[in-house]
Amino acid sequence: MEESVGQGQLVYYKIGGLIRKYRKEKDMKLLDLSALTGIKSAMLSKIENGRIIPTIPTLFTIINKLGIRPETFFAQLNADNAFPGYFFLPKEGFAAYEKEEGAIGFQYQSILEYNNDGGAFQISLLTLFPGSNRTQVTTAAYEFIYVLEGTLQYQLEDKTFDLTPGDALFFDGNIAHTPINYKNMMVRLLVFYLFADQNK
């Protein structure tokens, strides 16, 4: 059984991004990696897009089949977590990343990733372009949504919320969810992911 994010780590994003990077460098599709590892492509997709993190045996299976030395892979997950008392975050430093393969018109930029003894969080800027589309997904985190620009609907399973600039929504990411840009205009959201330490 796959594990939810915990233990104050923010490697959920880095693990998925690294796996996707190495897979694409080898010109492999998710189905190719699935055939090599015996892990379902749907599960691999969730791992790559940061919806879950893999168990240690699953992770070692993936990196082994991708031909990556474990020490090389894990060295890229290390980060200096010392907090200097502030972070200045110029917009030029926002890192674009892909969260869901197959999503149309979703553009994510990571603004800040940070972890401490109490858990971990990530703040992202999400831009929804006209015609954007995605199925409902789940995330092993709490999510806080704040609308910066545009009008949208946010679906939480069978509930729908109408949001305009300045509105916010907080929810358990384990509830299936998706934003819907139903107008012919761009929508910008701040998305705050909170990964609590489940061992406390």
Rank of each mutant, 00 (worst) to 15 (best):
S41G: 04
A42E: 09
A42L: 01
A42K: 12
K46W: 02
E48W: 12
G50S: 14
G50C: 14
I52A: 07
I53A: 12
P54Y: 12
P54E: 05
I56M: 15
I56R: 04
T58I: 13
L59C: 09
L59G: 10
T61I: 05
T61E: 13
I62N: 02
I62P: 04
I62L: 08
N64G: 15
L66A: 03
G67Q: 07
E71K: 12
F73W: 01
F74A: 11
L77C: 06
D80A: 04
D80M: 00
A82M: 05
A82S: 09
F83R: 07
G85W: 06
Y86D: 07
F87Y: 04
F87P: 03
F87C: 05
L89Q: 00
E92L: 04
G93M: 04
K99A: 14
E101S: 14
G102T: 08
A103D: 03
F106E: 09
Y108T: 00
S110E: 10
S110Y: 00
I111N: 00
L112K: 02
N115C: 13
N115T: 11
D117R: 08
G118E: 13
S124K: 04
L125G: 01
T127D: 03
T127Q: 14
T127Y: 05
L128G: 01
L128A: 00
S132E: 12
S132K: 01
S132A: 15
N133C: 04
N133K: 10
T135I: 08
T135G: 08
T135R: 08
Q136R: 07
T138F: 09
T138R: 13
A140M: 11
A141L: 03
A141C: 05
A141H: 07
A141F: 06
Y142G: 13
Y142R: 12
Y142Q: 15
E143W: 04
I145M: 10
I145L: 05
L148K: 12
E149R: 13
G150Y: 11
Q153S: 14
E157A: 13
D158V: 11
T160V: 15
D162K: 15
P165A: 13
D167Y: 10
D167W: 02
D167Q: 12
D167V: 09
L169K: 03
L169Y: 14
F171S: 07
D172H: 14
A176K: 12
H177P: 09
